[in-house]
Design a protein around this nucleic acid. Structure first.
Lengths: 95, 95
DNA sequence: GAAGTATTTCGTTTTTTAATTTAATAGTTG
DNA sequence: CAACTATTAAATTAAAAAACGAAATACTTC
């Protein structure tokens, strides 16, 4: 890997390496979820979820669509799905 | 993934997500290297390399062997090799 | 055992990241 | 349009990680 790729890759990993954000990504593996639904699962405040979602959006990992006053989030980058899948296989073989 | 696995996984990712540490892991993909050799490649101080190596050791990602007054580092966890390989394929397809 | 090389440790400073609180925006419903 | 819900934004505070420099350790060679 070139240094630029190292930089880009480490930014990506950093954005995935917060427990709340990693959990959000796991939750979004197979379905889209609203901010409120995410908040229930990760047990924190709306504002906090929103902040973390923004970081993931900034990385281009997730996208959202609006419906009424709900915002549904989903993973846009297929590679992220694959990467998380690989992590599961390697490190959590029982699931 | 369970919450405990999420915690463990995010710690692992965090330890890999610093550009210097990620570069060290890439350098150690196919060979073992001394602290000094690593320092040359990542262009920082010995103390800084040592600090980062300690973090990777703490995570159980790398191990070392002593030879004279050199310390040779290598990746011990095969899963890390696989994970980095996967990241390469997904995000750096040209290499 | 003195001098030299490689690495680590420790204490400090700087920088980054995360959490918290409050206020703002946007849409919905009666 | 008032009351309500969902989400975001902005500002502050708290906590964690990184970088730096100097001193300490360990091993080698002469």
């Amino acid at each position: 890997m070139h240094d630029e790729q190292i930089e880009a890759m480490s930014k990506l990993l950093k954005s995935m390496s917060h427990p709340i954000r990693l959990k959000i990504l796991c939750l979004l593996q197979d379905k889209e979820l609203s901010v409120g639904e995410i908040r229930e699962q990760v047990k924190t405040t709306n504002a906090n979820v929103s902040q973390h979602l923004n970081i993931l959006r900034g990385q281009g990992i997730i996208d959202y669509r609006k419906d009424a006053n709900f915002i549904f989030n989903k993973i846009t980058d297929k590679r992220i799905l694959e990467l998380i899948q690989k992590m599961r296989v390697l490190f959590c073989p029982n699931f």
